[in-house]
Amino acid sequence: MADLSALPGGKSPWQSAARFGLYTLLLIFAAYYILPLIVVLSTSLKDLDEIRNGTLLSLPSEINFDAWGYAWNEACIGVSCTGLKPYFWNSVAMTIPAVLISTLLGALTGYSLTKFKFKGANLIFAMILFGCFIPFQVVLLPMAQSLGYLRIANTVPGLVLVHIVYGLPFTVLFFRNYYVNIPDDLIKAATIDGAGFFMIFWRIMLPLSPPIIVVTIIWQFTQIWNDFLFGASFTTGGGQPVTVALNNLVNTTTGVKRYNVDMAAALITAAPTLVVYVLAGRYFVRGLTAGSVKG
């Protein structure tokens, strides 16, 4: 909003006090949000003795990445002690194709539903949109059965299929809302110029789409990477994605409780989405607001 305090009559002792209060409030909540990250990070860098003898907020006396190495290579998940590594790559192998395919399908569908409107296009959109609102519990059981029939239960391709299907309503929503604001005249002009459906998509629409592509990819990436429900429901053992493995690691009760390893494992699991968020956070925010306020 307009900076009213800079206007004449805006400066007074009361105003300064309000300003001080404002910054205090902002900083207290900044601490609420940032402290857990600091605590987790510093715990992951301590050794077990230091954890037991120190407090939550004490900083590690020396930077020690042992827990990180252990979490990555050796930690036991269930009965196999392979560390998070194989599960991390499961997640990578699951996330990348699922993100790309659901984004492409979403773009093509959004394009068709807005720029080549046919009878019933709005109804089809509404029916697809409904998929955004269902609690996934209503599809877990039949999905588990179907994956079995398709012989892709407990495999990465199985999870890719699941994530494509249930990501589609969101990608279609994003692209449809973006494309609906691109003037129809462009399509008409290109049609008269002699370009067909795919030519227009390739030469006109896609070059205009980077903002929404970035938004959709970030959204899908965080959703799929962070998924736990589907991973826990449809995979066991070595087929699990990293979120499920992390939970198993943390809740494995045998042996000594290595809090530093738990925290390192949590950070490893969080790293990809955090990196994406730090690098492209601006688009992330824009995507959240565009997708959820308008949708």
């Binding site: 290109a190 049609t191 070059p207």
Partner: peptide
């Protein structure tokens, strides 16, 4: 089809391709 009618059209919004 429009492309076979040998017509050209100028639009109110100009409809220029922004990326070209």
């Amino acid at each position: 089809h429009p492309k076979d009618r040998d017509i050209a059209m100028v639009f109110q919004s100009y409809a220029l391709y922004p990326n070209m």
